[in-house]
Design a protein around this nucleic acid. Structure first.
Lengths: 170, 170
DNA sequence: TTTCAATTAGTCACGCTCGACTAATCTATC
DNA sequence: GATAGATTAGTCGAGCGTGACTAATTGAAA
């Protein structure tokens, strides 16, 4: 949850936004990096406001329904820096998708394992292709680096799956 | 949450156990693979019982407080197989620890980024050393494979962090 | 000009998760 | 035989996360 707060504060470091914009940005650009949903973002924003990490100003444009514009405060900036340093420096609790399934593969015949993992391999390959074709965001060095990391890890996953599928095929 | 259910059913595929044993097993042996807490396991077991995936028998030994022994049912075995196949075959929503932090590293001076990532690198290295020294569990091929995967991915993370630290140091 | 879909901007109830707590027994030490 | 600490076996309240829902406006077609 700390990472989610870091994300929200990080977005607001750049500029003040209303809730809808924040969520749109996340959905459109950051689906690789987080799966936080709209309702979650709104409730975190509410909590951040209560803790005075951000301020809320209600704004109305024309006849549209009123929107809440969020702006990061001094305390918020401090918290952002704290969370950022924590995030960069700690390697707590690495867990990898699918390890639980792997643990139990003895319950399935070898060929089926090979087939299922092959399916997974295919999906990873597709994601990689999309990633490598995608243009740089241009949001800054950090965002590019995060994408690089993502791609690097996906490539590792691909390599591993490939070797395991081989092993189980014959 | 599906993976947590898979884990519980998978454990019960091997033998009937009471809640405490299940939790002890998870804490002692599976901390690398899941961070599910005791209370969560108990509540999932309750739900599984309600859905007739498992049966509960209350047992009393001597004067000790009564315990609930959980046994997987036919429906539970079917569900286990369904979840297992799903887990092995899908690559939905890969996300990697720390990517959110990386996105915002432009807010910090280069040397500090290098220093923070160096700390993370050190922790990854330690985990790897522990992992590589650890004896095989002997719970079967699947468990070993899951550990192999975990180590493989950690090694990739190590490699990546190393290259990035280099890049940011000079 | 009605009408249908898309966009904008959220809210709410419900289920999941877990830290903190309870309460009994056993084991060891004094 | 008293007390302290570890082990056994859970339960509970509160907070987090989200799918489903609401409700207004705008745009475009018919």
């Amino acid at each position: 949850m700390d990472e989610r707060v870091l994300l929200l504060l990080g977005i607001l470091m750049h500029e003040s936004l209303h809730g809808y914009q924040i969520n749109e940005f996340i959905e459109r650009n950051l689906s690789r990096v987080t799966d936080m949903k709209k309702a979650t973002a709104y409730s975190l924003l509410e909590r951040l406001a209560k803790n005075e990490m951000i301020t809320v100003r209600t704004e109305q444009e024309g006849n549209r329904p009123p929107r809440k514009v969020y702006t990061i405060t001094k305390r918020g900036v401090e918290e952002f820096h704290r969370l950022l340093q924590e995030s960069l420096s700690t390697a707590e609790s690495y867990q990898f998708r699918g390890d639980i399934g792997l643990m139990f593969l003895d319950h399935l015949p070898r060929e089926q394992v090979a087939e299922l993992l092959q399916q997974r391999l295919e999906q990873v390959k597709q994601r990689l292709e999309i990633l490598e074709r995608a243009p740089k965001h241009g949001f800054g060095q950090g965002v590019d680096l995060a994408m690089e990391h993502h791609a690097f890890m996906l490539r590792s996953e691909h390599e591993w799956l490939h070797s395991i599928v081989q092993r189980f095929q014959k």
